[in-house]
Each structure stands twice: as structure tokens, then as C-alpha cells.
Design a protein around this nucleic acid. Structure first.
Lengths: 143, 143
DNA sequence: ATCTAAATAGAAATGATTTGCGTTTATAAT
DNA sequence: ATTATAAACGCAAATCATTTCTATTTAGAT
């Protein structure tokens, strides 16, 4: 007997975002949610080609951009290459610890952005709009 | 009478790095040092074309990579596009506040990376190799 | 002045991402 | 259930930053 896998139904999410629930979009979300590591658009494309006889890379890009814009998924900056990778976002404010070996992504909560915002307000007299905070390293298994 | 501009002589720096002091390299360093804002490889190329009748974009890329590898300049990640921008690094450990309007880059010193490293060591049991910490916003003049 | 490895220009290749456009499909109204 | 319509999509081609290749030039040492 196989272990039950409770898969999230993403149709309501897509509906709430005003996006149509297409099989490919649902498959993308399920894949990204199930994956511990970050994936490139091409990674996703290759995996989906197993399930969909015809699927284009532009579809992947379009959907990734759409979902990233709606804060459903998050970009990860690759240390060496200038490609974007994506993975599922689980909480609103968090930061990523990215394993450079196995590509696994783990969140951490410590965040000094409040401190930094204070410094920027007081010294630089500027306004913070966004920040990129990504820690690259080796995870437990890869150390 | 014009104000004196004390320009740094970058020849010793290049020599100490084992790089030849070519006119183009020197011009790149002077430009990046003088510039408050970050520049794209193409920005640099366009500016240098005024002074050098023949200069190729590959030269810019090669030198930027070389200098970045030697920690003389630093990459800045552009929020929207996936291009790399560069500017001169002044201290060993610092972070960037990048104005999304005028592209000026200012350093800030508050850094909680120590805290985060502790969390990653204790909870994730991983090893930090590098981090990207860049705050995007609007500077004093652009607010 | 000469030599040699490093640096360069210019053209071409690469590779990720985007665009254009005609076709298909999800969804809401009938 | 059928239909209408805007959103999604596939495919091909375009775009654009970056890299590679190769022959030539040049900085710096002898």
C-alpha cells in the first residue's frame, strides 16, 4: 500500500488570482511545491514534457513570470550564472539559504532588514523598496 | 581656475594583481571609481568609445570579470533585468543600497550576517559560503 | 631593440529569454 | 449543454546579453 500524498488543490489559488486553471499551470505549481530545490525554467520544461506531449518553453516563462508577479513563487539568484531559478514561496517574508551543491532551498527567519531600514532612513535618508537577501552555502547533507 | 581632481593612479594596483596596465583597463577603473552609480558593461563601453576609437565589448566583459574576480569591483543585481552591473568596491565587507531611480549606489554597514550565520549553523546545520544582500530603494534625491 | 605572454578587436557563436501570431481552451453567459 | 470570448498556448523566429575564436597588437621584461 502506498503512502497517501495530500496534494494541495491549486485551483482556488489560481482563481483568486484571476488566472485560469490550466493543466499546465497546475502541474507547474504542484511540481514547484513538491520540489525541495530550485529549478530553472528549462528544468521545469523537461519535467513537464514527460506529462504533456506538446508544451513550449515560452509557456513556462510566461507562467513563471505571472506567478512571480503574484508572489506565489520566488526567484533565486544563481551565484555563477545569470539565470533565474524559481521555487515555491511559503510565507510572506522570509529569506533563502541556497545550497550551492544540491540546490536545495531552505528558509530562515532571522532578518535584520528592520535594522538596515533604520540605517538607510537615518543616514542615507532614502526609502527602501525591496531587498535581495540570499545566503549561499552548503546544506547539512552537502557539508 | 578649475578645481584640482586628485586621480588615483591604478597602475600599482594592477601590477600587484599581476595584470598589465593597459590604457583601457586604467580608463575603466578611473571611470568606475569616479562614478557614483552602477554601470552596465554596455554603459562603460559607450563611454569609452569616446576616448578610444576602437574598443570592443568583449574587452569590457573580460576586464570586468577579471577585476571582479580580484575583488576590485562588485556586481550589482538589477531588480528587473537579469543584467549585471558593476561598480568600484571600497571596503572589504559592505552592502549596497541601490537607488532604482538614479542608479546611485551607497554602502551601508549594518549587517546581520553574523546572526544569520548563527541561525544557519544551529538550525539548518549548513555552512555559509557567500551571500547576496542588496537593498533597493530611492535615495535622498529621488524620494 | 627584442621577445613573449597577455590583451585586444572584430566577427561569429551561444544560449537564455521574449515576441508575434494563428490556434486551442477554460470559463462565464446563454 | 452550447456558445462566446478572452486568456493560454505552441511553434517559429527574433532579441539581446554574453562568450568564444582567431589573428593582431602591445606591455613589460630581457
Amino acid at each position: 500500500m502506498e503512502a497517501m500524498e495530500a496534494k494541495t488543490d491549486y485551483q482556488p489559488l489560481l482563481k483568486s488570482l484571476g488566472l485560469k486553471s490550466t493543466p499546465k499551470r497546475l502541474a507547474m505549481l504542484e511540481m514547484l511545491d513538491g520540489e525541495q530545490a530550485y529549478l530553472s525554467p528549462e528544468d521545469i520544461w523537461k519535467k513537464l514534457k514527460r506529462r504533456f506531449k506538446s508544451i513550449g518553453l515560452p509557456t513556462i516563462y510566461r507562467n513563471l513570470e505571472e506567478l512571480e508577479g503574484k508572489n506565489v513563487i520566488t526567484k533565486v539568484i544563481h551565484p555563477n550564472r545569470q539565470l533565474y531559478y524559481y521555487f515555491c514561496r511559503h510565507s510572506s517574508h522570509h529569506h533563502h539559504f541556497v545550497c550551492i551543491s544540491c540546490k536545495k532551498v531552505q528558509d530562515f527567519t532571522s532578518c535584520a532588514v528592520a535594522d538596515i531600514e533604520r540605517e538607510i532612513r537615518d543616514k542615507i535618508k532614502g526609502k527602501v523598496v525591496s531587498h535581495i537577501f540570499q545566503v549561499n552555502g552548503l546544506c547539512r547533507e552537502c557539508v
